[in-house]
Amino acid sequence: MAPVLQSSQPWVEKYRPKQVKDVAHQDEVVRVLTNTLETTNCPHMLFYGPPGTGKTTTALAIAHQLFGPELYKSRVLELNASDDRGINVVRTKIKDFAAVAVGSGHRQGGYPCPPYKIIILDEADSMTEDAQNALRRTMETYSKVTRFFFICNYISRIIEPLASRCAKFRFKPLSEEIMSSRILHICKEEELNLDSEALSTLSSISQGDLRRAITYLQGAARLFGSIISSKDLISVSGVVPQHVVQALFAACKSGDFDSANKEVNNVIAEGYPVSQMLYQLFDVVVEADISDEQKARICKRLAEADKCLVDGADEYLQLLDVASNAMRALCNMPEEFPHES
């Protein structure tokens, strides 16, 4: 990071735990890894779990603790999804890195410095199957001098031959207390004033994702200064205010198409992200006091709409259709259209 922009260093980086033992809430993982550090014997590893639970942090911490800042550059290769990781990179870059021999396993400057290199593949589940297959060969060939750390959200997207070669660690979503304590720690460091309402809002909108929580916090701090209310957090996070969701749901309940249409128009004009809206609508529907069948009908369409949005469909039309569908479910109108031929 250039010194000019020191202040803009993301807090996510700034407050990233530097040591494995500082990693929050992943006790089991930490225990095993601490052990690893002591013996400096380390298998290939596969970290998986939801985002923001400390996977990358752990991997980086291990690497740092093993090699220290001096050797880090030459011993560790970090690749993540945005680097080109096609099959060619696997064949050349990774291989080249893996092929270079390493020095002896002497301790240097208090770091264990085991005689192997580490390749960290962040977001490994976005690699193509071909690339993963190519990697498998490389892993075998250079297993003496390299260790691979795979990091992914969905273990099912890692091909079995790779997964079976690794020690697997599952990272749990962070509990609210852990999040709160971490957040409060940062607030103290950054001299922020966060009331308890804002704190609970923050942990609810970030859904166990600490990175997201910290990002929101930093965003709010930048935009609104040191006193942060829950409203500020909501506005930064892109979460739709609850009253807007409720208004749409009420309009659907009323059975009047035009008023629902008006609400939808309003959501669009206010610029709320519709995918987020669907998510929150889902929560409202699930909580609502309606029959299971009605819930099922609405949720089915919610799921479809979400997929359509991913495909790039128009937000207004999808939300309108969701609203119309919900209305028909809520008012017990038939599911089939009467005039369909």
Partner: peptide, 21 residues
């Protein structure tokens, strides 16, 4: 008529999605 609106808006959403793909 209100009766038809649901149906029509459903198809609009459906075909707009199709159009994207």
């Amino acid at each position: 008529d209100a009766e038809l609106k649901h149906e029509v808006c459903h198809w609009a959403a459906y075909y707009e999605h199709r159009m994207r793909l």
